[in-house]
Design a binder for these strands. Structure first.
Lengths: 333, 333
DNA sequence: TTGAAAGCGATACCAC
DNA sequence: GTGGTATCGCTTTCAA
């Protein structure tokens, strides 16, 4: 019936003042060992847990950060393990810092307004934003709000104050260099959506490497990460460039489809055509043949986003981070 | 420099008392249209947003519920789209109710303690718990705490006060009945983990249907949802029952591997051996041949969990829910 | 219908 | 090192 005990009750039980009890709970200085011990015992006996609402009211801190995932319909979220993986990384970093995670999904008009209210309703100490198309309204909202924020995945054409991203361009470059090194000469690509930085960056990497090698970079078909778009793109490539000897797909999901289309066209992978993907999702190990692909440290991405945000909320200054990618060679190239 | 405006400032600007302003914001009764309108305008001009911490302190409500995902290592979370899908459903229901979602991942000892503190630190109005092994310590913790809670997926051997689950047993039964109906007589199963209710329920459904049909239900190999376990199980089944003509795998991920093992053993699917999975994940459409599988309404699961919790927090009484599953026939059976 | 004032549970400042 | 007290921003009771 007591409900939750208050600090006042703790203080009374320990025979000290509320001020002293508070100091102990927040392990501040200026408390005698004796008093501290008494308070600690009282806390333990009463199972006292501070009321966070009351605490926030005075400290202006909430021990909570938000993760907003937007710029795509919920279907994408549900299907791409990418998000879960990022969240695991975030969770790990926040657990270390003892912070809570508030999740905000979607990006409808309604949602933007909700997030705006959330940000100004004194609930969170910072915000992480994930995977947005360049024109995501949340991006502007978050950067404008005077609350620490970190963007996961650079938006297209914008340089946010604080962001973490994988080295998409470098990863693509590595992939192509590997193909070139293995003697491939007629290399094509299925790009990602070119209204997102990931799409553009991987495409740029493709061109970088081919230009550097003095090979043509004109065998291009555009996809949008969806299997359907990949099927169309691969078919088109085969149609226009029947002699191509390698394909770099900007995502494993698309590479996997490319594999199928190639097989159906009677080509052997990797003998006739080499295929390289991007992401190194679990899927990559289970295609036939297993996919050579560019690993991107998704979990680290989340981890570093959260760590960066934590640093920001402490008033530390940080700079954006590009995480390295790595080519994982399996059987498809 | 003003920071956030307070209700006091709103009141002053509107030329009314704090009490009246508050009534308007919470659209309570006993406010004249004239006063209401003035306050509303002031709110708008000042971009006033109530301070949730202050509000919680007095109302004892937080407009926030928690989702705890536990009973498995983070790897599982990252790989199973199941969780994302549930979260999408939850997100939809919470958006309707205008509630926030606090996410708690993992289930280490440290975590249990964190959750315990969270529950008693006045931050959330209710908790949802997802996918636990029967002995998950969080389960006991949540049921004991006097805070509304909903369990997603019944824990093994326990009947929680409030839970939502898919009809795993019925779904498995349907799958087997379909196989029987198509003339399959030597039907085997690769089970899920038998320390989880899903595993047991699907296995029970398998036996139900075979018993009802007067067919033997002894062709059983145990898996744990992982591809590796499925490969071992399928190999073992083939070894012990080389003449089997159908396999029911308790998850698509395992069915997909079974397909591969069967193909490598020289059997044709579905001609020689029919294969049915469970879940209807996107994966199911892309296997060769496309997988016949039992659809479970994962998003609805999340949606109903959240709705149930919302009802509970309002003091309404609710009863647990079993959501129907449905056989989706493709090419593998 | 409205205004004034009493708390909600904590922190933090200021004397002692 | 410790205790008393103002204060955070809001809701809600009580009188008017």
């Amino acid at each position: 019936m007591a409900g939750q005990p208050t600090i006042e009750e703790v203080a009374r039980r320990a025979g000290v003042s509320r001020g002293t009890a508070s100091r102990v709970v927040n392990n501040a200085a200026h408390v005698s060992p004796r008093a501290r011990e008494k308070v600690l015992r009282a806390v333990d006996e009463l199972r006292y847990v501070p009321n966070q609402a009351a605490r926030s009211l005075v400290t202006q801190r909430h021990e909570t950060v938000a993760l907003a995932i937007s710029g795509m319909d919920t279907q994408d979220f549900a299907e791409h393990p990418f998000f879960s993986e990022v969240m695991v990384g975030i969770g790990a970093a926040l657990a270390e810092a003892d912070l809570e995670l508030l999740l905000v999904l979607g990006s409808t008009a309604r949602n933007v307004d909700q997030l705006r209210r959330r940000l100004s309703s004194h609930r969170v100490d910072g915000v992480m934003l994930l995977s947005l198309h360049g024109d995501d309204p949340l991006y502007a909202l978050v950067e404008r709000a005077d609350i620490p924020s970190v963007i996961g995945g650079k938006p297209l054409g914008i340089e946010p104050k604080h962001y973490v991203d994988a080295d998409n361009r470098g990863g693509a470059r590595q992939a192509i260099e590997y193909l070139v090194h293995n003697g491939r000469k007629r290399i094509a690509t299925i790009t990602g959506p070119l209204d997102m930085d990931v799409g553009v960056a991987r495409y740029d990497g493709f061109r970088d490497a081919l230009n550097a090698a003095g090979l043509p970079a004109n065998r291009v078909a555009h996809g949008d990460f969806s299997p359907e778009s990949a099927a169309r793109a691969m078919t088109k490539l085969l149609d226009k460039y029947p002699t191509l000897d390698a394909v770099f797909a900007a995502a494993d999901s698309m590479a996997s489809v490319a594999l199928t289309v190639l097989r159906e066209s009677g080509r052997r992978v990797p003998d006739d055509v080499a295929v390289v993907g991007f992401n190194d999702r679990p899927l990559a190990q289970h295609t036939t043949p297993p996919l050579t692909t560019v690993y991107q440290p998704v979990r680290s991405l989340g981890y570093e986003m959260a760590r960066m945000l934590v640093a920001l909320t402490k008033g530390e200054s940080v700079s954006s981070l590009i995480l390295p990618t790595k080519l994982v060679v399996r059987k498809s190239a």
